[in-house]
Amino acid sequence: MTAELLRVRDLAVSFATEGGTAKVLDRVNLTIGRGQIVGLVGESGCGKTTLARSILGVLPRNSAQIGSGSIVFDDADLLKVDPATLERTVRGRQISFIPQDPYGSFNPVFTIGSQIMELMKWKSPELNDRQAARSGWLPRFHGRQRYRADRQRVLEMLAAVQLPNPDAILAKYPHEVSGGQRQRLMIAMALLTEPKLIIADEPTTALDVTIQAQILKLLRQLATGRGVAVLFTTHDLGTAYEICDRITVMYAGQEMEEAPSEGFFNRPSHPYTSRLLRSLPSNDGGLVGIPGEIPSLVNPPIGCRFHPRCEYATEICCSQRPEPHDVGVDHVVRCYHPVTEKPKQAVQ
């Protein structure tokens, strides 16, 4: 058993669009250690969600295409595992998911309880691997004893995510509970199957700012307590700083820098991340943007995709993408000209 839980290497994913083929992921690397909380940070459209969905194996069937690379999870390359096995033994059971939109991610016409129990019927930790791997085409019964055990688990978990009155909530329909409660339910469902990894795709974007902090604290506390690793995508650096052990920054379909949170915020090495940190609103009221705009993914710049906006760019940046190299402990950057000076202003 390796120390790494998930290792994405050279993953390339493209989408067929009306304007042509969009190269949404360009040979992306990502590493998640066991029990680690990793923040995947980037602007909208930088490929965070595509990367998250690639790991889950639920890219849109007809438009997305995986060009190359590997996604090694627990020593098995998920891209080489057959889809049926992925569906039965990996998704939900070993890797679970917290969606961005707690409003639309519950099925509106079934009670919350019936949806949670459906999850438990197929993914309960009470099932052993052989039972879980059985074909979904055969009729299957929950079994009275297991149902009771599962329901007990569910009630305990709802209490753990601090939902009042778990019994009553299970009998309700999704539209009858608040957004914050729904996201707590999503966290509960993600933890219930005792996975090794949770993929949380911007789990707080749709919520009120006041609730965001509570939910994040809860997620961090529960995941750390159970030793579950979390891949947390966000466009908000502050949020990432609060809960992540490690940060990976993406720009236009390329990962730029991977580093432990402390190292990242104190000594950002990639020109993009450095400028990103400088562009945070500061106490003296200044706002510094990054000149230029996000490139098109159909015709992306060759080499480092940030080079048209980069003040340090040289010829080689425009022809070949830099390989990752270490600039500190566990601190990897993909740049020919990493920034060495400390930023003028650290976060918080």
Partner: peptide
């Protein structure tokens, strides 16, 4: 989105289509 969620959580395809 709920179908995306159900797929991501590994619900059997048959259950997703014919029930949900």
């Amino acid at each position: 989105n709920y179908v995306m969620y159900e797929e991501a959580m590994g619900f059997p395809r048959r259950i997703i289509v014919w029930k949900y």
